[in-house]
Design a protein around this nucleic acid. Structure first.
Lengths: 216, 216
DNA sequence: GTATGTGAAACGCTTCACAGCA
DNA sequence: TGCTGTGAAGCGTTTCACATAC
């Protein structure tokens, strides 16, 4: 019983299941079939069943999956602790928007500190946080216990800041820089880049034009 | 010769190659080996060679790939036209940040219009654009020729706005909403969600803790 | 009857290894 | 000698189909 080892493709879908389940719970749903969950998370019922079977059997044949129990189980597997601290590094336009966006709270995270290298910004208050200087990073991480960082600094300083974060004990980084970050093996980086996403959409738009068949 | 049909996994990497090549060009590089390009884009040399061979042979054995020629070829394959119009729908915190962020320009796109449903925001100027009302959407799309939209509206209205966009002729949407959008088959949606990304990082952090071996 | 859980088949992607060319 | 281009092998993911359980 339990999750021996979860395939990458499955792990990548778990957060989406969790979000769909929480929405369904708010809407008052008690159980959801694999088909319903698939529709709500943009995947297929077969994938849902295979994915969830990795976590042990939580569904009931003929009925479906219990919404709240499964959501709790997913949160546990994902290692989510309500209010887990995240450090936001870079208080420019994007950093400020993310702090105010609600994405952290919705995901069960808490902005523990906001940091910026710009002396003009340090000391200001953003989303209820006094922006702290880059030099304070080790102390801030120590004080908050955060190991997760969101990086919204300019490309030019992204690698240097990443190095500092790693040296200060961060083990996972969500980077909005457009370049690839070179980090030690034990550090996970995920990159989110507007330009990349738009270019990929552009490619598929063009491909669909050339071959005006159905698109996945 | 030419790109008969490009696998999804390859297509997803092309924008990253393009960005790495453009950075290399700015740094004065004339040619890049598959190994160098792999390092700059966070992949492997074998993948680079296989990916680029889909576009026809542009490298020289013993030398590498010509930086500018390959960048041009990639831009062509991705269907990138410098200054291609994109409509930004949702002028809240995140929308304003993205407009000011530089990600559009870096990717070769141009914000053709900013739209919001909130009467309080309509008429204001954001990143040089007078915010227009939701009702103007069809006219704006017609006028600008944009078929690509970036969606940064609240979850509650995301599906309704997506429906409007599709009805007005948009065929590709980059959505920052946390829910799955239901759209016709001919419309491509890519989703970017802070909560999902953080939760996935959280999962891997926990997995690495349990099994403190090397991580990819 | 209905929907899960799961082997097995099918598919696509990655890695390997090396022939071919500059 | 060095690096690309590519068949072939290896691996992970998806899909299928159905036995199983409520």
């Amino acid at each position: 019983m339990g999750e021996a080892s979860i395939p990458d493709a499955t792990a990548a879908r778990l957060p989406r299941y969790l979000q769909a389940l929480r929405r369904a719970a708010q809407a008052g749903a008690i159980t959801l079939s694999s088909e319903q969950l698939a529709r709500a998370s943009g995947t297929t019922s077969a994938k849902v069943r295979k994915d969830l079977s990795c976590l042990g059997s939580h569904g009931t044949r003929g009925v479906g999956y219990p919404v709240t129990a499964l959501a709790d189980e997913l949160a546990r597997v994902l290692g989510l602790i309500e209010g887990r601290p995240v450090v936001l590094v870079g208080a420019g336009n994007l950093g400020r928007a993310l702090a105010a966006y609600g994405g952290f709270e919705r995901g069960g995270f808490r902005v523990a500190a906001v940091i910026d290298a710009d002396a003009q910004i340090v000391g200001r208050t953003i989303a209820g946080h006094r922006v702290r200087a880059a030099e304070d990073l080790p102390a801030v991480l120590m004080g908050t216990g955060a190991t997760l960082a969101v990086l919204t600094v300019p490309d030019a300083s992204a690698q240097a800041v990443a190095d500092t974060l790693v040296a200060a004990g961060v083990t996972a980084i969500l980077s909005f820089a457009s370049l690839y970050l070179d980090v030690p093996e034990h550090v996970r980086v995920r990159r989110v880049d507007l330009a990349t996403e738009l270019q990929l959409l552009s490619f598929y738009e063009q491909a669909d034009e050339d071959l005006p068949a159905a698109a996945g």
